[in-house]
Simulated scan of single mutants.
Amino acid sequence: MKIALVQDGLMCRAGGEQVALCFHKAFPDAPIYTQCYQPDLTFPEFKDCDIRTSWMQKIAKTDDTMKSLFFPLGVWAMQSHDLTDFDVVLMSGTHCAKYVKVKKDALVVSYSFTPFRLAWDPTSYAQYTEAGAVKKLLFNKVLTYLRNVDFRFGQRPDYYIAMTEETKQRLREAYQVKNRIDIINPPVNTQNFYISKKPKEYFLVVSRLEYYKKVDLVVEAFNRLGYPLVVVGKGVQAEEIKAMANNNITFLSGLSAQELADVYAGCRAFIFPQHEDYGITPLEANAAGRPVIAYGAGGVQATQIPVTDDPENATALFFQSQTVDDLIDAIKQFEIMENRFKPSFIRKHAESFDELKFINKIRSFVTDKYVQKRKSETTVIE
């Protein structure tokens, strides 16, 4: 079984890159094809991998630049990858991994986080919703083309794997998938985190600073509360968010794995205000034994155990509206029950999502499907 791995890009440290790294651990001899790769911007473990970039590597030196050049350069760049020598192609991502060239009888498996967000859900981008009439008209023309192209290439995978039930339904609706879509939850490397016996006084956000992440909502809430808040991350909204923050809010970025583990272990609770397709960071907080205060929609419904009556058997407290008032109310409610959360229970819950289990599931899925395909081909020949 000659297998190739494909990832949209390796330009930051986020959930998609963690999945790609697990694919490498499942199939360590397989090369990784991607749009661009910058070793200093993503996980250091990729330095030991056989990574094959597109010609766009010479142009895009940051994640933001790579994304801004996606149309049309990113599409062309990924189409330049020729994987027709491979029997199996295992891809992960949302937008451009599916554009690589594969042979007709290859087994193609797509671990898709969600349908390409810009094409299928443009209202999640402030650049679209805040555009004027003329600019939005141009946007819509481009998006119609992108949606058609994305749908056409979305027909190539033989099998889709989804993160959650919600993203499974999105994939089925967007690409009209007829085959069964299995769900394999993305992993967390619990070995990277630990429980502290003496957490500190701050709350924590770990996130890219982009509009749909709603970090500005958290900053506004903590401006009003005056409580210590640590924000770890960078992104297009960084300067805007920093400018609105009071002195009780600290911003960090570029942390090592150990520094990040220390920040998680020291927080009172982790704040997660966005509607995320999945969200690895709440599970990372859980791996440090820390509870999560989250907007109760999207991926957290699959990864967290919300408080009902007993915080001792819960990992999170949900709030129901993405408003400053609702978040503040949730924080106040958390303070009442804070000492009743059990770090050992929260940590054990995170271990059920450990990356070793994910690696084994992915390896078994791909291997089983390949064996089935070979058997069916042999039967046809006979």
Rank of each mutant, 00 (worst) to 15 (best):
I59G: 02
T144P: 00
Q237V: 04
V231R: 01
I241A: 11
L255P: 05
V263Y: 01
V380M: 10
V100G: 06
A26R: 02
Y99C: 08
Y125G: 05
V205K: 04
E382N: 13
N246P: 00
W76N: 05
P115V: 11
F318T: 10
L10W: 02
D368C: 09
S364T: 15
F358N: 08
V263R: 06
L146N: 04
K47I: 00
P228I: 12
V149Y: 00
L90A: 03
A97D: 00
A126H: 11
E166Y: 14
F203R: 01
E45C: 04
F319G: 00
K67E: 01
A245W: 00
A243F: 07
E276S: 07
L225H: 05
R347I: 10
F71A: 09
L5T: 04
W55V: 03
L255Q: 05
A14M: 05
V6T: 08
A106I: 03
L317E: 08
Y175T: 06
I336T: 14
N248C: 11
P115N: 09
L260S: 11
R156W: 01
A119H: 01
Y227A: 14
D325L: 13
W120V: 04
F272G: 08
N339I: 01
I51M: 08
K141R: 14
N140C: 07
Q127T: 12
V108S: 10
M244Y: 03
D277C: 12
R170H: 09
I3T: 09
Q176M: 12
L83R: 02
L283E: 04
H275C: 07
E240N: 08
C96R: 04
K213G: 03
T308P: 00
V88T: 12
N313D: 02
R156E: 13
A119N: 03
L69W: 02
I293K: 09
G16N: 11
F193K: 05
I381V: 10
D158K: 06
G226A: 11
Y128S: 06
A316L: 13
V177E: 08
I51G: 00
A330S: 14
E173M: 11
G296Q: 09
M91K: 09
S352F: 00
E173A: 14
P122W: 12
E312Y: 10
Q320K: 09
M337G: 03
E210G: 06
I359G: 02
I3R: 04
N360D: 13
R180D: 15
G15D: 09
A316Y: 07
K141T: 13
T84S: 15
